[in-house]
Design a protein around this nucleic acid. Structure first.
Lengths: 351, 351
DNA sequence: TTGTATGCGTTATCAG
DNA sequence: CTGATAACGCATACAA
C-alpha cells in the first residue's frame, strides 16, 4: 500500500497531527520534529492521497474568472466554454469557480475588479484588456496575496503567475508562410481589417509584424504587400467603399490577410460584390468565420485554441493552489491552421 | 451539502447497504426496495462522490495496452507517451495500466494477445495491426466480456467499444488542399512513399484516395498527378534510382505527397542529390520528420495527435469502466497542419 | 508544542 | 434478502 501520514508519523516518532502541521506549515512545531518528519517524508517518499484529502477537506478553494462579455465580443464565448468544461471536470473536488463578465469599457472592467476583490478569491483569472486599470487591480491583488493568471493578452510587467495564450508574432509568421506557398510573382497581398478607430491591441500589431517579418526574411518583395486599416465609426459604412476602391485599383490582389477576428466581414464584402479568386486568411473560430470557411468565402483560419485558453487557465490555478505544483509562467498554446477540410474535426481542440 | 447514499436510504426507508446493492446491482434485493430506491435517487438527484468511492475501493481496475514496439516503428512512441501521461494523471485513482509491447510480426502479436488474456484485464487497448489475429483475440475477449478500444487502425467489423484515431480519407483531402493552393498550371504532383512490399495498410490507401478525390472534385487535371510506390527489399536500394529517374523525367514536379510516416526518407534523397524547389507534404511528427521540417527539407506535415491517441484511449476506457459513462464509439482526433512556423508550439497537442 | 478523536461518503464484510 | 459497521487517508477541532 501507499505511504500514509501515519506511517511517517511512526517513523519520525511523532503523532499524525504533528506531521500534518509540518506538511501544511500551520501551527508551531519544534525544530527537531520538523527535521525528523521531513526526513521521514523524504525517505518513505510520501505523496498525499488526493482523494482522502479532498474528502476530508472543509474549506473550498475559490477561483474567480473575470472575462469580457461574449454577447459583445463573440470571441470570448470559447474561453468561457473552456472554463465551464474545467468546472465540470472539477465537480468532485472542493473547488468553486465563479465567472464574472464585464463590458469592453474600462469603467465596467474596474467595477468588475472591485466585485472580485470583495469575493474572497483564492486565485483570479482575468483578461487584462485595459492596462492602467489592470495595474490598479494587480496592486490590490498583490496586497491580498492573491495569485492571478492572464488569458489571451500578456501584460508581462504585471507579472502574472502565468500567461496563457498565443504567440501572436509567430501566428503572423504562420499566416505569411501560407501566403508564400500560394503567391506568384506579379500578385499582391493585402493586409486588411475592420475595427473601431480607437482600439489598438498589441496582439493585432504583433500578428502584422510577424507577417511582414516572415516576408522580409524570405526575400519576398515588400512592394507586393499593402495595408488597410478600415476604421468603422458610429453608423458609417465608408470603409466598404475604401476597401472596394483599393481592390479595383489593385486587381491582381491574390491574398487578403485579416489579423483580427473579423475576417467574415471582409469576406462578406467580397461576397456581396461577387469578387472572386482572392484567398482570405483570418483568425479565430467565430461562428461566422466558420460558416464562411465552410461556404468557401474564407480559405484559412489561424486558430488559437480559444476554448483551451479558458480550460488551461482554470487548471493552472487549480494545480498551483490545490495541488501546490510548480507552474511555468508562460503557456503558449499551439497555433492551428484550419480550412474547409479539417474544420469539422476541430472541436476547439481540447484533450 | 450533496445528496449521499444515506440520504436516499432514509428517503426509501431502507439501509445504506441496500441502496449500495441496488446501485451496483450486486447481491439480491426485493423488487419493492429497487423501485423505492430508484425513485429516491431520481427525486433527490443522487451523484456518487468519486473521492469517497475511490477512497473506499478495494479492487483496482486493470487496463492493459497492447502496443507495437516503438524501437521498431518510431511512430508508436507518441501514443505510448500519451498512455504514460494518462497513467500519471490517474495515480490517485484505483486504476492500474499495463503496457505490453509486440513486434510487428503476426506471431509476436498473437503471443502478446495471449499474455494479455492471462492478465485479468478489465479493459484492453490495442492496435489491430493484423486483422486475422485480431479477430481471434477479439473472440476471446468477447467470451470473457472484456471491452476493448482500437487505436489508430479501425477494424469496424470487430466492433470495438471505441475507435480512436484519424479520419485518413479526410487527412488526404487536407494534404491535397494545401497542394492546390500552391500548384500552377504546368506543374506536377507526385505521390511517393517508401515501404516494404508486403505491407498494405488501409489508412495509407485512404490517404491517397482522399488526396485524389479532392483533386477530382476540384476539377484539377488528374494527369498532373503520378504515383510511385517505392518498395524496399532486404538490402536493396534500387528504389532510390527509380525515384531519381522519375524526377529527371518530370523536372516540373512541384509537390511530393508522402502518405506514410517516412517523408524524411524521400526528403533525404532530394537533399542528397541537391534537388531543390520541391514542396514535400508528409505525415506524422517523427523526430526525423521534425528535424527535416526545421531544416527546410520537408515543408508540411499532417499530424494526427499521436500522443493524444494513447491518452484518449486510456481515458475512454477509464470513463467507461470506472465512471460508467456512455462512450461514443468513434473518436476522430483533429487533423493538424504543421510547418516550420508552428511546429515548436506543437507539443503533441494535449489538453 | 503535541496527541487524539471524529467525520468526510463510499465500499465491503459480517451477522442477521 | 437486509442492516449495521469497520475501514479508506486525511483534515480539523479539541484536549493535554
Amino acid at each position: 500500500m501507499n505511504v500514509r501520514i501515519i506511517d511517517i508519523a511512526k517513523k519520525a516518532g511523532v503523532s499524525a497531527g504533528t506531521v500534518d502541521r509540518i506538511i501544511h506549515q500551520r501551527g508551531k512545531c519544534s525544530d527537531k520534529a520538523i527535521v525528523k518528519v521531513n526526513q521521514a517524508i523524504e525517505e518513505l517518499g510520501y505523496e498525499p492521497d488526493m482523494m482522502a484529502r479532498n474528502l476530508a477537506l472543509k474549506k473550498v478553494l475559490n477561483i474567480v474568472c473575470l472575462m469580457p462579455n461574449p454577447d459583445e465580443t463573440e470571441y470570448w464565448s470559447r474561453p468561457i466554454a473552456g472554463i465551464e468544461q474545467a468546472i465540470s471536470e472539477l465537480t468532485s473536488f472542493k473547488v468553486k469557480v465563479d465567472i464574472i463578465l464585464f463590458s469592453t469599457r474600462a469603467s465596467s472592467f474596474s467595477e468588475a475588479c472591485d466585485r472580485v476583490l470583495n469575493l474572497q478569491a483564492d486565485g483570479v483569472i482575468y483578461v487584462p484588456l485595459f492596462f492602467e486599470e489592470s495595474k490598479v487591480f494587480v496592486q490590490k491583488l498583490n496586497q491580498k496575496n492573491i495569485p492571478f493568471v492572464h488569458v489571451n493578452i500578456y501584460q508581462k510587467e504585471l507579472n502574472p503567475l502565468c500567461f496563457i495564450g498565443q504567440d501572436a508574432l509567430q501566428a503572423g509568421r504562420l499566416a505569411a508562410s501560407i501566403c508564400k506557398l500560394g503567391i506568384k510573382d506579379i500578385e499582391r497581398i493585402l493586409i486588411a481589417y475592420i475595427s473601431k478607430p480607437k482600439q489598438e491591441y498589441s496582439h493585432i500589431e504583433l500578428r502584422i509584424k510577424g507577417f511582414l517579418e516572415f516576408f522580409s526574411e524570405n526575400r519576398l518583395p515588400m512592394e507586393q504587400i499593402s495595408q488597410l486599416h478600415l476604421k468603422v465609426g458610429e453608423n458609417d459604412n465608408e470603409y466598404e467603399t475604401v476597401f472596394r476602391d483599393y481592390l479595383t485599383a489593385s486587381p491582381n490582389t491574390r491574398f487578403i490577410y485579416v489579423p483580427n477576428s473579423r475576417a467574415y466581414r471582409i469576406a462578406n464584402i467580397l461576397k456581396k460584390y461577387k469578387i472572386n479568386g482572392i484567398t482570405i486568411i483570418g483568425f479565430d473560430t467565430l461562428e461566422q468565420n466558420i460558416e464562411f470557411l465552410n461556404k468557401g468565402y474564407i480559405q484559412f483560419l489561424i486558430a488559437q485554441q480559444s476554448k483551451n485558453q479558458g480550460y488551461q487557465a482554470v487548471m493552472t490555478l487549480f494545480n498551483a493552489l490545490f495541488r501546490k505544483m510548480e507552474i511555468k509562467n508562460e503557456h503558449y498554446l499551439a497555433i492551428d491552421i484550419l480550412n474547409k477540410e479539417n474544420i469539422d474535426f476541430y472541436s476547439g481542440r481540447m484533450v
